[in-house]
Every structure is written in C-alpha cells, then in structure tokens.
Amino acid sequence: MSACLDITNLSAVLANGQRVLRSVSLSLQPGEVRALVGESGAGKTMIGKAVLGVLPSSVRIVEGNMSLEGEDLGRLQPRARRTLIGARTALIPQDPLTALNPSRRIGPQMTDRLVRILGWNGDKADKRVRQLLDEVQIRDPDRVLKSYPHELSGGMRQRVLIAAAFAAEPRLIVADEPTTALDVTVQKQILRLIADLQREHGTAILFVTHDLGVVAKISQKVSVLYAGKVVEEADTARLFEAPLHPYTRALMAATPRYTDPFASLKPVDETVLAGLAAEIAAADQTWRHLHG
C-alpha cells in the first residue's frame, strides 16, 4: 500500500535565494495524524501550503518530490494536479472568519465545493453537508446553513469548516493551527471532534501547530521543525518520553506547565541556538555544493 503523502527532499527558496524549506522529507500513512511543530519561521505552514499547491508566488520549489497516494504531483500537468489535490485533500484553516465568504450564507458555501469539484448534484451535496453538521454536533443545521459567518461564534465557525473539510471524504487534511484562535475549553471540544471524525473516516491529517501540548494529544507522529528543516522526527509517544534533539528538549522546557511551574518556562539556551545555527549552515553548505 502506498503512503497517503510522501514528501522527499523538498527545498524551497525565496526570490532572494534564501532557503525556506531545507530538504524536508516526511511520509504519512493512510489514517495517520502527523504533527508539524515549530516556532514562527519554522516552515510548518509552508509545508502545508506546498502540499495543497497554494504556495505564495514569492516561494519557489527548487528540489524534491511530493506524491499523493502514489501519484507524483510533479509529473502532472497543473490542471490535473489541481484536480487531484482538490479531490483528495482539504484544509482546516486557523481563522474560520477569513476562510469563509462574509457575504454568503453557510449552506451554499459548504455545498459549492461538493458540486463544483466532485460534480455532485445539489440534493446529494445538501444531504451530505447535513450529515457532517450532525457529526460535528451541530443540532440546528437549518439555522446554521441559513446563517452568515458573522452570526456564528468562533467555535461554531470552526465546526462548520471541519464539517466542510470532511464532507468530500478527502484522504488527507491539512489542519493549519485550527485551534490557535480559540479559548481553551472550545479548543478541547474542537480537538476532540477532529480526532473523532479522523478516526471514523480514516483520514490522514497533517496537523500544523506551535503547541507541544496539542501535539501530545492529537498526533501519532511528529516532525519538529526549525528554520525549514526537520530536526527531529519520531512517534509522538517516544518524543515526549525521550526527546533526542537539543532543540526539542529546549522547546519542551520552555513550554509552560501548570503542573510543574518551575521546571517549565525555561528560556532556550544560547548553546542550543548556536548548535542549530551551525546545523543549518552545514546543511546549506552541503546543499550549495551539490546544487552549485
């Protein structure tokens, strides 16, 4: 069985030649939840965008392969690639308010995708959307489908987007910080929903987050990123039991924990940062050597 998503040696640069992704490799099995964790500038969102084919025009992929269920995306014509990505992937974005069109009701926004991309008829799409709203525990679908985005709370909007993401039965979902803007109690409900739907539908998820707490709860595997490079990759259980890379250990020590206030919130040590800088410089030197 081929992997759901396979990324090998993906490198991307900005117009000025600066590398923003540094030979990233990762592989997701069907139904696996993989966390991409790192601080700002680590490239975690960039990887998600690369997979979905929506990188900003300022970023250029210069090396590497990506394949979805065994189909090499780089070998497809742009149109065929978009169709494949549209049919097999979906996005759960961070900010549900900007991801929804403010001037359209929720209903048509949710069914549109099914009608346009999958060619379903309106009735089938409507039925499917209602089924998914039920799965995300929205008990009054008629009201929600008739609402405009601003009429719903942040948690409700995120439920709508989760339902929309799962509606087309994608094989892979990119979830980009889907709970970062939410209050903790709502975050917990939303994480639980994503986990339940993921299990029932067998969807693989690339879960982008900056929060090691969320990583621990939602993922089976994790890639720790720094400056566009995967510094550590592990089963999530192993990572929390025995983090190997000094940066992973530093991130864990910096993350606040109310259960252990004085062993947490430790500033990252200068030697760790110096070590990372050296690691990145060495990787870049090898890369330049190979690519002239």
């Binding site: 621990a216 999530t236 929390f240």
Partner: peptide
C-alpha cells in the same frame, strides 16, 4: 481543558 505537553 489545558493540553499539557505530555502523553495522555
């Protein structure tokens, strides 16, 4: 509701 950075 706080997700602590530990397996649970």
């Amino acid at each position: 509701a706080i997700p602590l950075p530990e397996i649970d």
